[in-house]
Design a protein around this nucleic acid. Structure first.
Length: 199
DNA sequence: GCTGGGATCGCCT
DNA sequence: GGCGATCCCAGCG
């Protein structure tokens, strides 16, 4: 049983530091009594109203982004390109809208289940992208607004565990797939990892 | 009310 | 490397 989840205070740091600190942590899901998860090897930070790439740009709120403007430590899951989903963790206090996008995992648990969900046995491709890891982990829009901190209960089925192995270097670079704010160094990944979405 | 673009992925050449 | 799939929402009228 996973119990040592991260605490709310983890998300109270400076946004870019939170994004960087998530590297090496374990993200897991325990859905339908079948756990799976992996080590976070790639993240991107989306700032609040001032970040043109952020859904919180101009502090515009919609039904879709409501969770993004909620309290820290909750999952923000949204659909992209009509067919994929992205998973974020809200890292700002209520009303601000900063979040960290989880972009890639090194698979560690429930590999067979993730292979089944992804229809591939290629380990390095299982979770090497935001849409891929969401599919592999069984994360759906139903998990939008799920707490990732402190308590573990029947309704909180996603968890984050502190990094156990921190013997890696982190590369800081620009975010992927955006046009606005494309020059900002808000992306982090594990140097040399086989499991990142792109160099 | 219509149109175009988006924090993607997998298949094609 | 290029492209289509396919939904949400912003911008325009």
């Amino acid at each position: 049983m996973k119990v040592a989840r991260v605490r709310r205070s983890f998300f109270e740091g400076e946004p870019l530091e939170v994004g960087r600190s998530l590297i090496g942590m374990e993200l897991g899901s325990d859905l339908s009594k079948s756990g799976c998860g992996g080590l976070i090897v790639e993240t991107e930070v989306y700032m609040g109203p001032e970040d043109r790439a952020s859904h919180a740009w101009k502090a515009r709120r919609t039904a879709r982004t409501e969770v993004l403007f909620g309290p820290r430590g909750y999952s923000y899951v949204f659909q992209i390109y009509g067919m994929h989903y992205c998973f974020n963790v809200v890292s700002s206090p209520e009303g601000v809208g900063e979040a960290v996008l989880i972009r890639a995992l090194e698979p560690t648990e429930g590999i067979e289940l993730m292979e089944k969900r992804r229809h591939t046995y290629v380990r390095r491709s299982l979770c090497s992208g935001p849409g891929k890891l969401v599919r592999a982990m069984g994360i759906t829009r139903a998990l939008n607004g799920t707490s990732l901190i402190d308590t573990y209960s029947a309704s909180t089925r996603l968890y984050l565990l502190p990094a156990t192995d921190t013997a890696f270097d982190i590369i800081t670079t620009t975010r992927i797939g955006i046009t606005q704010g494309a020059d900002l160094p808000y992306r982090f990944y594990v140097k040399g990892s086989l499991y990142i979405s792109r160099k």
